[in-house]
Design a protein around this nucleic acid. Structure first.
Lengths: 364, 364
DNA sequence: AGCGATTATAGAAACGTTTCCGTTCCAGCA
DNA sequence: TGCTGGAACGGAAACGTTTCTATAATCGCT
């Protein structure tokens, strides 16, 4: 291919100065040119198939119109839904997204962020993973002027200045409890995620509070340590089963956990929802397909919120305090955004039949 | 934040020339420096927290280490699996990926590619959508020196010079037919995708051939026009049902189509696999979860293949013929890569019981 | 006619690299 | 001693923009 035309070529072709060409091409505000000149330049652009060199432009303007997105993994549709929304939103504002996966490794996580910053991205969207292990990283990032929006979880940091978007974690379990309780369930067990995970702890809190408010004296007994994966669901269900505790409803920490429960239940000849009801958390479209009552985290809305926050940060750098110590001068936008989850009632929950308390029957 | 240090700052701090600093920082091959000088420079880099300005570097070297990925949509896990693999592979070679969605709109599709090219990406991975509508676009891209790997479908172009990776389309249906036939099924219907889609046509061909080879005289009668979405599955199944044709097995064009079938079947009181067997195409993990016998397109392998192809193109630009007309000088790599699908046998298929030919029973 | 104000245009600097090309220094050798 | 050649290093050009500053032209108005 012939060498790409430069702005100088355009200027020469149109018989104008390079400033003129540049201003006209970029529709520089506050510059006035005769229609005829403008026409000549535009025609030159056409004939030479000129398009500006992005590197040169960003070198000069220090604006890449790119934002980095760091996510642990793209597997599963939670993050792909989220990124779907982010891409759509940012694209509308002519921002490109640079996608990175950290595969759950704190070291890679940090490296990816580092690389993105060296690439001069205008902003970052980073999932918070291993809040404790990466604490130093997040603290360092806070010293930076790079606009950042975090998501999915909280960092251990006391005074964050960057906004954070996540699900209203306690509400996830609370919605599930309320739904089941209203249906008449009284023995509701929660197969919780790993206790190391702060989100899991919050969901646990939500569960305990909701149960308390319903009048359950010591709800702690209704928590089963499980995890987010299918095997955790299996193991958790197994343990619950062997404990002989009676139950009529289960809340699974994730849809995978839910699958584990369903698998074991089937093996044991138990039917859902006839023998017990099941609510999953964050199952998305997959839960819909499976007819599972589910608490929707609304990843799309999360993505949109993140994008909007980042866009305002990008648009008005002042909203983030500069690291040199001066106070924020712009509008201070709220830092912690909790996206409200939604309950989708489907076929995996129904009113309990008194005689079908699973554990009780097993204990007979 | 203080202004970022430049290579000149490093040079000054280390008391060397800027060339020296640059060479040492980049470990420029074929340059020899005293260990002591190297030490001084490296130390300066540390103290100044120097990291090179990416735009300036790119401007000079014309290498962005970025590749653009254009995909119709991130919804569903086919593409997220694919991109998961792509990101992983390219990241290992220090390439970043710029992600775009075209939302199935040919105009946006073209714009995205345009934008990416203007950003001087080193290469492109583009899904072929609307092969006919975008024909001119693909032809134009072929005139370009930008390394490109296409995927997911074929363009209508006669002489492509860029490699293309896709599933072995006919094999998708053939595998399904073979599996069902071996199990003893004889009345196998294919709920096909939209006939405008070239992939659907090829899958149809595969189906017809496979059926012929099994000895079915006129297999055309076993094709039901449906589509890829859930409602298409519903409608297709409905029509099949109303046609009263007997069948013992169905092949669904996609997992969504399969869901549609399952939904209607349930409403009609039909059980899978007792009343008829069902095979879906490209259901991935979701099919595994649902216990559906499925033809796996292996998106991960597709992603890896694409990445590897692009990497060789990037590494050895000669493998792509230059647009100036000279013949390709490098190794000519095969252009059309068909990834072999895999059959996963699960619970949605079983041997047919002679008395349960669905349509026949309905006709009684 | 003269003059400031506005409009229309251009030249050249600056952004931060990499790299071409050149210089210095010194050991080795005839 | 004079010369060669390689090792070690530095100056400055070039990449293609945007933008600062300057200049020529036009115009309204006294």
């Amino acid at each position: 291919m012939a060498k790409r035309a430069t702005i100088r070529d355009v200027a020469r072709e149109a018989g104008v100065g390079v400033t003129t060409a540049s201003n006209i091409v970029n529709q520089h505000p506050g510059s006035s040119y005769k229609a005829e000149t403008r026409g000549r330049v535009l025609r030159a652009v056409q004939t030479l198939e000129y398009s500006p060199n992005w590197s040169a432009r960003t070198l000069r303007t220090r604006q890449t119109l790119a934002v980095g997105v760091v996510v642990s993994d793209l597997l599963g549709n939670y993050f792909s839904d989220l990124i779907y929304a982010v891409e759509k939103r940012l694209d509308a504002h002519h921002y490109q997204i640079l996608l990175c996966q950290s595969h759950g490794d704190p070291v890679i996580h940090e490296r990816q962020i580092q690389v993105l910053r060296e690439r001069n991205v205008d902003g970052l969207l980073v999932q918070i993973v291993h809040a404790s292990a990466n604490n130093a990283l997040y603290r360092r990032l806070e010293m930076t002027t790079t606009p950042i929006v975090y998501f999915d979880s909280k960092a251990d940091l006391a005074d964050m200045t960057s906004p954070l978007v996540e699900s209203n974690q306690p509400q996830l379990t609370r919605l599930a409890v309320d739904h089941l309780w209203k249906m008449g369930h009284r023995e509701i067990f929660f197969l919780s995620g790993s206790p190391h995970h702060i989100n899991a702890r919050e969901r646990r809190e939500g569960f305990l509070q909701a149960m308390s408010e319903c009048g359950v004296p010591s709800p702690e007994g209704y928590i089963v340590e499980a995890g987010y994966q299918e095997e955790h669901g299996q193991q958790g269900f197994q343990r619950l089963w062997e404990s002989r505790k009676p139950f009529t409803a289960l809340i699974a920490s994730s849809i995978y956990c839910g699958y584990g429960v369903m698998g074991r239940a089937r093996e044991m000849g138990l039917k859902i929802p006839e023998d017990f009801s099941l609510v999953t958390i964050g199952g998305g479209r997959e839960a819909a397909r499976m007819g599972l009552t589910d608490i929707d985290q609304n990843p799309q809305l999360i993505g949109e919120t993140m994008s909007d926050l980042l866009l305002t940060l990008l648009h008005d750098k002042n909203s983030k305090p500069q690291a040199n110590g001066t106070a924020p001068t712009g509008v201070s936008l709220p830092l912690h955004h909790r996206i409200e989850p939604m309950l989708h009632i489907r076929q995996s929950t129904q009113e309990p039949k008194a005689q079908s308390r699973v554990g009780a029957r097993a204990a007979k």
